[in-house]
Amino acid sequence: MTEHPDRPLRRLSDEGVAVWLDDISRERLRGGNLAELIRERDVVGVTSNPTIFEKALKEGDAYDAQLHDLAIRGVSVDEAVRAITAYDIRWAADVLRPVYDATGGVDGRVSLEVDPRLARETDRTVAEARALWWLVDRPNLFIKIPATAEGLPAITRALAEGISVNVTLIFSLERYREVMDAFLSGLEQARANGHDLAGIHSVASFFVSRVDAEIDKRLDAIGTDRARELRGRAAIANARLAYAAYEEVFGSQRWKALEADGARPQRPLWASTGVKDPAYSDTRYVTELVAPNTVNTMPEATLEATADHGEVTGDTVRGTYARARADLDALAEVGVDYDDVVRLLEDEGVQKFEKSWEGLLGGVSQQLDANA
Rank of each mutant, 00 (worst) to 15 (best):
F250G: 01
P299Q: 11
V249E: 14
G251C: 15
Q253V: 11
W270D: 05
A305F: 14
P292Q: 10
Y321N: 06
T294C: 15
H309G: 14
Y285A: 01
V286T: 13
W255T: 10
V295L: 09
E247P: 14
A263K: 05
D327I: 02
A260V: 07
W255Q: 08
P265N: 07
D329S: 08
V275S: 10
F250C: 03
P265T: 08
T320E: 08
G310L: 03
T294E: 06
P278I: 06
R254F: 02
D277K: 07
T313L: 14
A305G: 14
W270C: 09
R254A: 02
Q266E: 13
S281I: 01
T316K: 10
V295W: 08
T306H: 05
Y285S: 09
R264V: 13
V290T: 02
G274N: 03
Q266T: 09
A257G: 02
V249A: 15
T316P: 11
G262S: 09
T287K: 12
P278G: 09
A326G: 10
T287C: 07
T283F: 02
D329I: 12
T316Q: 07
F250E: 00
D315E: 06
A279D: 10
V275H: 02
W255D: 04
D277Q: 09
A305W: 13
P265A: 03
E300M: 15
W270N: 04
E259V: 03
H309D: 08
D315I: 10
T302V: 04
A324I: 06
N293Q: 11
D277E: 13
A332Q: 06
Q253L: 15
E288H: 12
G251I: 14
M298V: 07
G310C: 13
D277A: 11
G319V: 00
L269G: 09
T302Q: 00
K276C: 03
A322Q: 08
A257L: 05
W255F: 14
Y285Q: 06
L328H: 09
R254Y: 00
V317Y: 00
V290I: 13
Y246F: 05
A330K: 09
D277C: 12
A260I: 05
T320K: 03
E288Q: 10
T287N: 07
E300I: 15
A322V: 00
W255K: 15
A326C: 07
D329F: 11
D308A: 12
T273E: 03
P299E: 00
L289E: 00
L258G: 01
T297M: 00
A291S: 08
R267I: 06
A330N: 15
L328D: 14
T297C: 02
H309C: 13
V317F: 05
A307F: 11
D277H: 07
R323V: 01
T320N: 12
Q266M: 13
P299M: 05
N293A: 10
S272P: 03
L331G: 04
G251N: 08
D327F: 01
P299G: 14
S281H: 01
R325A: 02
L331Y: 05
D282P: 10
